[in-house]
Write a protein that binds this DNA or RNA. Structure first.
Length: 247
DNA sequence: TCATTAAACGCGT
DNA sequence: ACGCGTTTAATGA
Protein backbone atom coordinates (compact mmCIF):
# COMPACT_ATOMS: atom_id res chain seq x y z
CA UNK A 1 0.00 0.00 0.00
CA UNK A 2 1.34 3.38 -1.01
CA UNK A 3 1.25 6.29 1.37
CA UNK A 4 -0.76 9.22 0.11
CA UNK A 5 1.20 12.45 -0.35
CA UNK A 6 0.40 15.04 2.31
CA UNK A 7 -0.97 17.44 -0.28
CA UNK A 8 -3.79 14.97 -1.00
CA UNK A 9 -4.79 14.90 2.67
CA UNK A 10 -4.92 18.69 2.57
CA UNK A 11 -7.06 18.58 -0.53
CA UNK A 12 -9.47 16.24 1.18
CA UNK A 13 -10.13 18.83 3.86
CA UNK A 14 -10.67 21.49 1.21
CA UNK A 15 -13.70 19.59 -0.12
CA UNK A 16 -16.81 21.79 -0.12
CA UNK A 17 -18.51 19.62 2.49
CA UNK A 18 -15.44 19.52 4.75
CA UNK A 19 -14.48 23.19 4.68
CA UNK A 20 -17.30 24.39 6.89
CA UNK A 21 -17.37 21.58 9.43
CA UNK A 22 -16.58 22.31 13.06
CA UNK A 23 -13.06 21.64 14.29
CA UNK A 24 -13.71 18.30 16.00
CA UNK A 25 -15.63 17.06 12.97
CA UNK A 26 -12.78 17.95 10.65
CA UNK A 27 -10.40 16.18 13.00
CA UNK A 28 -12.45 13.00 12.96
CA UNK A 29 -12.82 13.05 9.17
CA UNK A 30 -9.09 13.57 8.77
CA UNK A 31 -8.34 10.73 11.15
CA UNK A 32 -10.74 8.14 9.77
CA UNK A 33 -10.72 8.79 6.03
CA UNK A 34 -8.61 6.44 3.95
CA UNK A 35 -6.70 7.59 0.89
CA UNK A 36 -6.03 4.88 -1.63
CA UNK A 37 -4.46 4.88 -5.07
CA UNK A 38 -6.20 3.13 -7.95
CA UNK A 39 -4.52 2.38 -11.26
CA UNK A 40 -6.44 3.16 -14.42
CA UNK A 41 -9.05 0.47 -15.03
CA UNK A 42 -9.08 -0.87 -11.49
CA UNK A 43 -12.39 -1.43 -9.73
CA UNK A 44 -13.03 0.81 -6.72
CA UNK A 45 -16.21 -0.93 -5.73
CA UNK A 46 -18.21 -3.79 -7.15
CA UNK A 47 -21.86 -4.26 -7.80
CA UNK A 48 -23.53 -6.19 -4.98
CA UNK A 49 -20.92 -5.36 -2.36
CA UNK A 50 -22.00 -3.91 0.97
CA UNK A 51 -21.55 -0.12 0.87
CA UNK A 52 -18.99 0.69 3.53
CA UNK A 53 -17.56 4.00 2.33
CA UNK A 54 -18.40 7.33 0.82
CA UNK A 55 -16.14 7.83 -2.16
CA UNK A 56 -14.26 11.00 -3.07
CA UNK A 57 -12.18 11.61 -6.17
CA UNK A 58 -9.25 13.59 -4.80
CA UNK A 59 -7.31 13.35 -8.02
CA UNK A 60 -8.19 11.51 -11.23
CA UNK A 61 -11.45 10.38 -12.74
CA UNK A 62 -13.87 7.51 -12.17
CA UNK A 63 -16.95 6.18 -13.86
CA UNK A 64 -20.10 4.60 -12.44
CA UNK A 65 -21.38 1.81 -14.62
CA UNK A 66 -23.20 -1.48 -14.75
CA UNK A 67 -22.94 -4.68 -16.74
CA UNK A 68 -26.02 -6.58 -17.81
CA UNK A 69 -26.38 -10.35 -17.55
CA UNK A 70 -25.62 -10.56 -21.30
CA UNK A 71 -22.38 -8.69 -20.80
CA UNK A 72 -23.52 -5.37 -22.23
CA UNK A 73 -22.28 -2.45 -20.16
CA UNK A 74 -23.12 1.20 -19.93
CA UNK A 75 -21.75 4.15 -18.01
CA UNK A 76 -24.04 6.41 -16.00
CA UNK A 77 -21.75 9.17 -14.85
CA UNK A 78 -18.16 10.21 -14.85
CA UNK A 79 -16.82 11.95 -11.78
CA UNK A 80 -13.77 14.21 -11.99
CA UNK A 81 -11.42 15.55 -9.34
CA UNK A 82 -13.23 17.08 -6.39
CA UNK A 83 -16.35 14.96 -6.90
CA UNK A 84 -18.02 12.74 -4.31
CA UNK A 85 -20.22 9.74 -4.95
CA UNK A 86 -21.76 6.63 -3.46
CA UNK A 87 -23.88 8.36 -0.80
CA UNK A 88 -27.04 6.81 -2.21
CA UNK A 89 -26.19 3.30 -1.05
CA UNK A 90 -24.97 4.59 2.32
CA UNK A 91 -28.17 6.52 2.98
CA UNK A 92 -30.33 3.59 2.00
CA UNK A 93 -28.08 1.04 3.68
CA UNK A 94 -28.15 -1.00 0.51
CA UNK A 95 -25.57 -2.93 -1.36
CA UNK A 96 -23.89 -1.23 -4.28
CA UNK A 97 -26.07 -1.21 -7.36
CA UNK A 98 -23.31 -0.09 -9.65
CA UNK A 99 -19.65 -0.55 -10.20
CA UNK A 100 -17.14 2.25 -9.74
CA UNK A 101 -14.03 2.05 -11.92
CA UNK A 102 -11.01 4.34 -12.19
CA UNK A 103 -10.78 5.79 -15.71
CA UNK A 104 -7.19 6.80 -15.06
CA UNK A 105 -4.72 6.61 -12.22
CA UNK A 106 -6.61 8.15 -9.33
CA UNK A 107 -6.32 8.99 -5.65
CA UNK A 108 -9.54 8.04 -3.94
CA UNK A 109 -10.78 9.05 -0.49
CA UNK A 110 -12.88 6.57 1.43
CA UNK A 111 -14.95 8.00 4.26
CA UNK A 112 -16.13 5.09 6.44
CA UNK A 113 -19.87 4.50 6.72
CA UNK A 114 -19.75 5.24 10.47
CA UNK A 115 -18.06 8.60 9.90
CA UNK A 116 -20.50 9.47 7.14
CA UNK A 117 -23.49 8.52 9.29
CA UNK A 118 -22.17 10.53 12.21
CA UNK A 119 -21.82 13.63 10.02
CA UNK A 120 -25.27 13.01 8.59
CA UNK A 121 -26.76 12.88 12.09
CA UNK A 122 -24.87 15.76 13.65
CA UNK A 123 -24.00 18.35 11.00
CA UNK A 124 -26.53 20.67 9.39
CA UNK A 125 -23.78 21.90 7.07
CA UNK A 126 -23.16 18.38 5.89
CA UNK A 127 -26.86 17.81 5.27
CA UNK A 128 -27.02 20.97 3.22
CA UNK A 129 -24.17 19.73 1.12
CA UNK A 130 -25.86 16.39 0.55
CA UNK A 131 -29.15 17.96 -0.51
CA UNK A 132 -27.27 20.27 -2.81
CA UNK A 133 -25.30 17.43 -4.35
CA UNK A 134 -28.32 15.16 -4.83
CA UNK A 135 -30.18 18.05 -6.40
CA UNK A 136 -27.32 18.80 -8.77
CA UNK A 137 -27.03 15.18 -9.79
CA UNK A 138 -30.76 14.91 -10.40
CA UNK A 139 -30.50 17.98 -12.61
CA UNK A 140 -27.68 16.37 -14.51
CA UNK A 141 -29.70 13.23 -15.17
CA UNK A 142 -32.71 15.24 -16.28
CA UNK A 143 -30.46 17.08 -18.72
CA UNK A 144 -29.23 13.76 -20.08
CA UNK A 145 -32.75 12.41 -20.53
CA UNK A 146 -33.86 15.63 -22.18
CA UNK A 147 -30.99 15.69 -24.65
CA UNK A 148 -31.45 12.00 -25.31
CA UNK A 149 -35.10 12.50 -26.19
CA UNK A 150 -35.21 15.77 -28.05
CA UNK A 151 -31.70 16.84 -28.99
CA UNK A 152 -29.09 15.89 -31.55
CA UNK A 153 -26.33 13.45 -30.72
CA UNK A 154 -23.89 16.34 -30.69
CA UNK A 155 -25.92 18.00 -27.95
CA UNK A 156 -25.96 14.71 -26.05
CA UNK A 157 -22.19 14.61 -26.10
CA UNK A 158 -22.08 18.23 -24.96
CA UNK A 159 -24.37 17.43 -22.04
CA UNK A 160 -22.22 14.51 -20.94
CA UNK A 161 -19.03 16.52 -21.32
CA UNK A 162 -20.55 19.43 -19.45
CA UNK A 163 -21.57 17.01 -16.71
CA UNK A 164 -17.90 16.29 -16.10
CA UNK A 165 -17.41 20.02 -15.55
CA UNK A 166 -20.39 20.58 -13.29
CA UNK A 167 -19.07 23.13 -10.81
CA UNK A 168 -21.17 21.67 -8.01
CA UNK A 169 -20.37 18.02 -8.62
CA UNK A 170 -16.73 18.18 -9.70
CA UNK A 171 -15.45 21.55 -8.54
CA UNK A 172 -11.81 20.87 -9.33
CA UNK A 173 -12.19 19.28 -12.74
CA UNK A 174 -9.26 20.30 -14.96
CA UNK A 175 -10.06 21.67 -18.43
CA UNK A 176 -7.96 18.96 -19.97
CA UNK A 177 -9.78 15.64 -19.88
CA UNK A 178 -7.72 12.53 -20.34
CA UNK A 179 -10.42 10.31 -21.78
CA UNK A 180 -10.65 8.25 -24.97
CA UNK A 181 -13.44 8.60 -27.51
CA UNK A 182 -14.43 5.08 -26.60
CA UNK A 183 -14.96 5.90 -22.91
CA UNK A 184 -16.74 9.13 -23.75
CA UNK A 185 -19.02 7.18 -26.08
CA UNK A 186 -19.87 4.79 -23.24
CA UNK A 187 -20.58 7.77 -21.03
CA UNK A 188 -22.95 9.21 -23.65
CA UNK A 189 -24.56 5.90 -24.55
CA UNK A 190 -23.45 6.33 -28.16
CA UNK A 191 -21.27 4.37 -30.53
CA UNK A 192 -17.65 5.38 -30.91
CA UNK A 193 -18.29 6.60 -34.47
CA UNK A 194 -21.14 8.86 -33.50
CA UNK A 195 -19.39 10.22 -30.43
CA UNK A 196 -16.29 10.91 -32.53
CA UNK A 197 -18.33 12.77 -35.13
CA UNK A 198 -19.99 14.86 -32.42
CA UNK A 199 -16.62 15.70 -30.91
CA UNK A 200 -15.38 16.96 -34.26
CA UNK A 201 -18.43 19.17 -34.53
CA UNK A 202 -17.74 20.55 -31.07
CA UNK A 203 -14.17 21.16 -32.16
CA UNK A 204 -15.30 23.05 -35.26
CA UNK A 205 -17.47 25.17 -33.01
CA UNK A 206 -14.32 25.92 -30.97
CA UNK A 207 -15.81 24.47 -27.79
CA UNK A 208 -13.18 21.75 -27.45
CA UNK A 209 -9.82 20.86 -28.89
CA UNK A 210 -8.72 17.27 -29.30
CA UNK A 211 -5.32 15.69 -28.97
CA UNK A 212 -4.26 12.05 -28.65
CA UNK A 213 -6.39 10.65 -25.83
CA UNK A 214 -7.16 14.15 -24.59
CA UNK A 215 -10.16 16.43 -24.85
CA UNK A 216 -9.40 20.01 -23.90
CA UNK A 217 -12.46 22.07 -23.13
CA UNK A 218 -11.81 25.56 -24.46
CA UNK A 219 -14.98 27.23 -23.31
CA UNK A 220 -16.79 25.59 -20.40
CA UNK A 221 -19.51 28.24 -20.32
CA UNK A 222 -20.25 27.87 -24.02
CA UNK A 223 -20.33 24.12 -23.60
CA UNK A 224 -22.87 24.43 -20.81
CA UNK A 225 -24.89 26.90 -22.87
CA UNK A 226 -24.96 24.54 -25.82
CA UNK A 227 -25.79 21.61 -23.55
CA UNK A 228 -28.74 23.59 -22.22
CA UNK A 229 -30.06 24.99 -25.50
CA UNK A 230 -28.92 22.57 -28.17
CA UNK A 231 -28.05 25.66 -30.21
CA UNK A 232 -24.61 25.45 -31.70
CA UNK A 233 -22.92 28.60 -32.98
CA UNK A 234 -19.94 27.73 -35.16
CA UNK A 235 -17.24 30.35 -35.55
CA UNK A 236 -18.44 30.95 -39.09
CA UNK A 237 -21.76 31.97 -37.62
CA UNK A 238 -22.45 35.72 -37.70
CA UNK A 239 -23.70 35.53 -34.12
CA UNK A 240 -20.17 34.98 -32.94
CA UNK A 241 -18.28 38.02 -34.15
CA UNK A 242 -14.63 38.71 -33.49
CA UNK A 243 -13.40 41.26 -31.01
CA UNK A 244 -16.25 41.20 -28.55
CA UNK A 245 -15.26 43.10 -25.44
CA UNK A 246 -14.57 40.42 -22.86
CA UNK A 247 -14.59 41.02 -19.11
C1' DT B 1 -31.92 1.32 -49.64
C1' DC B 2 -29.77 3.93 -46.29
C1' DA B 3 -28.05 4.56 -41.56
C1' DT B 4 -25.98 2.66 -37.62
C1' DT B 5 -23.43 -0.56 -35.09
C1' DA B 6 -19.55 -3.60 -33.19
C1' DA B 7 -15.44 -5.71 -34.56
C1' DA B 8 -11.40 -5.75 -37.21
C1' DC B 9 -7.51 -3.49 -39.21
C1' DG B 10 -3.71 -0.35 -39.57
C1' DC B 11 -1.24 3.69 -38.62
C1' DG B 12 0.55 6.92 -35.32
C1' DT B 13 1.69 8.40 -30.58
C1' DA C 1 -0.03 -0.66 -25.40
C1' DC C 2 -3.22 2.61 -26.51
C1' DG C 3 -5.92 5.96 -29.24
C1' DC C 4 -8.40 6.77 -33.30
C1' DG C 5 -9.63 6.90 -38.26
C1' DT C 6 -11.21 3.67 -41.48
C1' DT C 7 -13.15 -0.58 -43.35
C1' DT C 8 -16.27 -4.38 -43.09
C1' DA C 9 -20.25 -7.20 -42.30
C1' DA C 10 -24.51 -7.56 -39.86
C1' DT C 11 -28.68 -5.40 -38.43
C1' DG C 12 -32.62 -2.58 -38.54
C1' DA C 13 -35.45 1.48 -39.91
Amino acid sequence: MTDAPLVLRERLLEAPWARDLAGPQVARVAKETLLVHHASGSVICREGEPALHWIGVIDGMVKVDTVSAEGRSTTFIGVSSGGWLGEGSLLKRERRHYEVVALRDSWIALVPLETFTWLFETSLTFNHFLVHQLNARLGQFVAVVESCRIQTTTAQVAVCLAGLFNRELSPQAPNVLKISHEELARLCGLSRQVAGRALHELEQAALVKMQYGVIRVLDVDALHAFARSGELHTDSSPARSRGLPSP
